[in-house]
């Protein structure tokens, strides 16, 4: 069962083929941003977990997990733009781009986060938390609807949800920073011997 779980989670996006379920998730702002998008991310993470090292970016272009984590940050930033939410509901190409981007963000995070040292990991997690919190505040403060597809009330609640998620990710970042360094990760953090250059 433990080995099957990642595959089950990775298959979750297939549920989006079921139109009523997809509409249920996307017809309101909160489930769209705080259920569907994280679900796609988790599915990507689980897919990478199930596939193992095959799903990682080549180490030669992902030193310290920088490339994968750049992708995760960029996808998060892009989908905080209000017009992207509307466009993904009105343009089927953007809808599929959204699914793929978030799935790949999960894959990238699973492969790249373990490669990142404490500082790099905290930098990216902190950056994402800050971005979510900023978007959350804007969603709450905006006097009018930012998305034509959603009501103002939903926007305010989603803003609160984004801030809660930002706090959660921020906490994870701090926890990562305070985590005791294992001998294995300490070795990884050390510079390679000169002979290996």
């Amino acid at each position: 069962m433990k080995r099957r779980l990642p595959w089950v989670l990775a298959a979750l996006p297939l549920l989006l083929w079921i139109t009523p379920l997809r509409q249920l998730l996307e017809s309101r702002m909160l489930p769209h941003m705080l259920v569907e998008l994280p679900l796609l991310f988790i599915a990507g993470w689980a897919l990478a977990q199930a596939l193992g090292p095959r799903a990682r970016l080549p180490a030669v272009i992902d030193a310290h997990g920088l490339l994968g984590l750049t992708w995760v940050s960029a996808v998060s930033a892009l989908w905080m733009i209000p017009s992207m939410l509307d466009l993904s509901l009105l343009d089927i190409r953007l809808q599929w781009a959204k699914y793929l981007a978030w799935l790949l963000a999960g894959v990238a995070a699973r492969g790249s986060l373990p490669r990142a040292g404490a500082v790099v990991g905290v930098f990216f997690l902190g950056n994402i938390a800050w971005m979510l919190a900023t978007a959350g505040l804007l969603f709450q403060e905006a006097p009018q609807r930012l998305c034509v597809s959603y009501l103002l009330d939903e926007q305010i609640v989603t803003g609160q949800g984004l801030i809660a998620l930002a706090v959660l990710i921020g906490t994870l970042a701090v926890r990562r920073l305070l985590r005791p360094i294992s001998p294995a990760s300490a070795c990884r953090a050390l510079p390679a011997p000169a002979s290996a250059e």
Binding site: V60, A63, L66, L67
Partner: peptide, 25 residues
């Protein structure tokens, strides 16, 4: 860590960032 992967990584991350900034713009 050899410097070559870091340089290639920085190059790839820069290209990716620029592409996404362009797309956002």
């Amino acid at each position: 860590m050899s410097r070559r992967p870091l340089a290639l990584t920085l190059l790839a991350a820069t290209v990716l960032s620029l592409a996404l900034v362009g797309l956002s713009a």
